[in-house]
């Protein structure tokens, strides 16, 4: 009886996560991308991925990569697997930092994780795109392009703002989050 209850609860959790993945993807694809300039740079999928990794663990993080990566790969006209690989590398790096450095669930640990994961995401994705267009003569290596750093800066700022808002929303419903500043 208890086992059956546990199995049902697991299935419910899988269903809830699956629906959440779809919702986050739809909001990212249609709502956020419709905005111009800085607001359109918000990477909602990445932020939610970090939150899931930190609250639910590595396994659920991998599940979210499969879902989000698959949807991104079928909608965007990049070789299939690019987003799966990018998200995977981001989660690996974030998990390593989570276990070794950002060990509490405070706001500044989220800020740190979002900072690093945003940079890793942009560098990995742009690197993959650069190799895709390697033989095109007009492609300057993206790290030497001013526009790339400007956009990255705007993305970091808007991702931090979203992290700040989401942190307080999640901490309202979930007691696993720590206070903003850790007191000794």
């Amino acid at each position: 009886m208890v086992n059956r209850f546990k199995i049902n609860r697991t299935y419910l959790r899988i269903l809830f996560n699956f629906l959440s993945i779809i919702l986050v993807f739809l909001i990212h694809l249609s709502f956020i991308r419709a905005f111009d300039s800085w607001l359109g740079y918000l990477n909602l999928s990445l932020i939610f991925l970090i939150f899931v990794l930190e609250t639910s663990g590595f396994t659920w993080g991998l599940g979210w990569i499969l879902g989000l990566g698959f949807f991104f790969d079928i909608f965007y006209f990049l070789p299939f697997g690019y987003f799966l690989l990018t998200f995977f590398i981001v989660v690996l790096v974030s998990y390593f930092l989570l276990l070794g450095f950002f060990t509490n669930r405070s706001l500044y640990s989220y800020f740190g994780l979002v900072f690093v994961s945003t940079i890793v995401y942009e560098v990995v994705l742009n690197l993959l795109i650069y190799f895709l267009n390697f033989y095109s003569s007009s492609r300057i290596f993206f790290l030497f392009v001013k526009n790339f750093w400007e956009r990255l800066g705007q993305e970091l700022i808007v991702n931090w703002l979203a992290t700040f808002v989401l942190f307080y929303i999640f901490s309202f419903f979930n007691k696993r989050f720590n206070a903003v500043f850790i007191r000794k």
């Binding site: 249609s30 991308r33 419709a34 359109g40 990049l78 492609r139 993206f142 526009n147």
Partner: peptide, 8 residues
């Protein structure tokens, strides 16, 4: 949606 910029 908008696409992704291939050229940074």
């Amino acid at each position: 949606s908008k696409g992704y910029s291939i050229n940074s």
